[in-house]
């Protein structure tokens, strides 16, 4: 589903954020990316979503070679992907319904379908009762779950999350990870960037560890990192 071959990413400032990345994430897999601050976790996700473009190598997502996608085709490509931010980034002047409906409205879904899917997504994250509230009336954890509902409402093939638990306490973080697991169980490929290694170690999923822009270790064995 996601394949990196000898990928390099150098920012215009000259910062070598990723170097010689090779990795393969299968369809329906759930993978964590970890590493210390500045290791290149966010950069890796941003390349998959075409927020930034890699400078060398090849990335294939859902059968498409990213370097071949022209700028004006990026919007269509991104409709395959759900994205979750650390700080949820909801639109504060819209209701929860409107926030979650956004990806469907963008791709032009009909009204009945939008309504049905928004209800289903909010039900899944347990926030159906807040559908007519505004984001400011929700707690931080609830807002983050709305962000998850928005990311899955259009049934993307790939779900990317950059530090989705960054602002949550440990119990809520755990719930959040379990929520991702549920989406993964219905076939969504999930890639989560998180520095909370202690927690993700217990999720029994593959962990990719980045250090200084290189993959340090791939596998559920992360001794290298811990001893580092």
């Amino acid at each position: 589903m996601i394949q990196f071959t000898n990928v390099f990413m150098t920012y215009p400032s000259g910062n070598k954020a990723l170097q010689n990345i090779n990795l393969n994430i299968n369809k329906g897999e759930m993978v964590y990316v970890s590493g210390r601050s500045g290791a290149g976790k966010s950069t890796l996700l941003k390349l998959i979503n075409l927020i930034d473009r890699h400078t060398r190598g090849q990335i294939i997502v859902k059968g498409q070679s990213l370097e071949r996608i022209k700028n004006n085709r990026i919007p269509i490509f991104r409709r395959n992907i759900g994205f979750i931010f650390q700080n949820h980034r909801l639109l504060n002047d819209r209701t929860i319904f409107d926030n979650v409906a956004l990806p469907l409205v963008i791709s032009g879904g009909n009204h009945q379908e939008v309504k049905r899917r928004v209800h289903a997504a909010l039900d899944k994250v347990g926030l159906l009762s807040k559908i007519n509230n505004c984001p400011v009336e929700l707690s931080g954890g609830e807002q983050q779950r709305v962000g998850v509902a928005r990311a899955v409402v259009h049934r993307p093939a790939v779900l990317l999350a950059d530090e989705p638990t960054g602002n949550l306490d440990p119990a809520l973080s755990w719930d959040m990870m379990k929520l991702f697991e549920q989406f993964n169980q219905v076939g969504v490929t999930v890639l989560i960037a998180s520095h909370e290694l202690d927690m993700i170690k217990h999720m029994n999923k593959r962990i990719i560890i980045l250090d200084g822009g290189r993959i340090l270790d791939v596998g559920d064995n992360n001794k290298n990192y811990i001893n580092h």
């Binding site: 979503n49 919007p75 490509f77 991104r78 990806p103 963008i106 259009h154």
Partner: peptide, 14 residues
Amino acid sequence: RNEIEITKLFGGTD
């Protein structure tokens, strides 16, 4: 700004 960025991220065309 925030809304435009999010819309672009979820595949909103220009």
